[in-house]
Design a binder for these strands. Structure first.
Length: 264
DNA sequence: AATATTGTTCAGCA
DNA sequence: GTGCTGAACAATAT
């Protein structure tokens, strides 16, 4: 479930491993992952490039190269990165292998092949072309911006939070988590929420992301009062002891506490 | 064997 | 234009 915190942790792992390394050779094992570029062109243009810097926007990871291009990585629902010394066994479901000059390999692994990788000219242009909203964990993203985005919206708060064109980075799991800590029922209409409730959602969003990144998105390191450890019908709410319910919405499961996230 | 899972995109409809 | 729903994409775990 690579949402904003997972991608941020992937970025940090990338920074402490592959950053500043030079690509000796790239193997594309499945060209269905590549977007707008052939595997042959990708392999040629990546060869001898050096990874210079990383940025994240929402669920997207960007790696600036020393060529005039930027590597764009999106993880879909099941993607992740692995970094192993050459000679060790290749992870199952590897789709792209970056052989590096330092004798290590960086693997883009994606069992369900819903991720996308591409080379783009410019990160800012990519964000604009894809009409992505502001990154919700950026320091530049303030309460006033959030309030402005929510103004006049009609749909449910959960769908609105997950709309990448409004806000970049929140998916199914973390939208549930944010609303859980905000004491708000996920299918409340945005226009039914008052300013105080919106403010709470904004604050909890920052808190949830900060905690998740601090925990390196490892289950055992999460605060014990997090819903994502209890995503199953009938579990006990770690905040109030109420019952955790599940509701299907457009093919996705939402979990919430019946007792402290009441319908309006 | 059937179902749930996860993110994005798109078609069809109100 | 906005928002909702379901389907499609892929492959696995239960």
């Amino acid at each position: 479930m690579p949402e904003l915190p997972e991608v941020e942790v992937f970025r940090q792992i990338f920074n402490s491993s592959a950053l500043n390394q030079k690509v000796a050779k790239v193997d594309v094992l499945d060209d269905g992952i590549l977007e707008n570029i052939s595997s042959r062109a990708f392999e040629i243009r990546m060869k001898n490039a050096t990874f210079q810097a990383t940025h994240r926007h929402g669920k997207y990871l960007f790696v600036e190269l020393d060529t005039e291009e930027t590597l764009m990585i999106h993880f879909g629902m099941t993607g992740y990165l692995e970094y192993y010394k050459d000679g060790e066994e290749e992870p199952e479901y590897s789709r792209i292998v970056f052989n590096l000059n330092n004798g290590y390999n960086l693997y883009y692994v994606c069992p369900r092949k819903l991720g996308r990788v591409s080379l783009v000219e410019d990160e800012a242009d990519f964000i604009e072309e894809n009409k992505l909203g502001p990154d919700t964990y950026s320091d530049e993203f303030k309460w006033e911006d959030f309030r402005e985005i929510m103004k006049g919206k009609r749909g449910s708060i959960k769908t609105t939070l997950m709309n990448q064109q409004l806000l970049a980075g929140i998916g199914n799991v973390y939208s549930d988590e944010i609303l859980f800590h905000s004491n708000i029922y996920p299918f409340t209409e945005v226009n039914e929420l008052n300013e105080e409730e919106l403010r709470t959602i904004f604050e909890k969003m920052k808190m949830v992301f900060e905690q998740a990144i601090k925990a390196e998105v490892k289950e055992e390191k999460f605060p014990k009062n997090f819903l994502l450890l209890k995503r199953s019908e009938g579990e006990e709410c770690p905040i109030c002891g109420g019952m955790i319910k599940r509701e299907k919405y457009s093919g996705r499961s939402s979990y919430y506490c019946e007792a402290h996230q009441k319908k309006k």
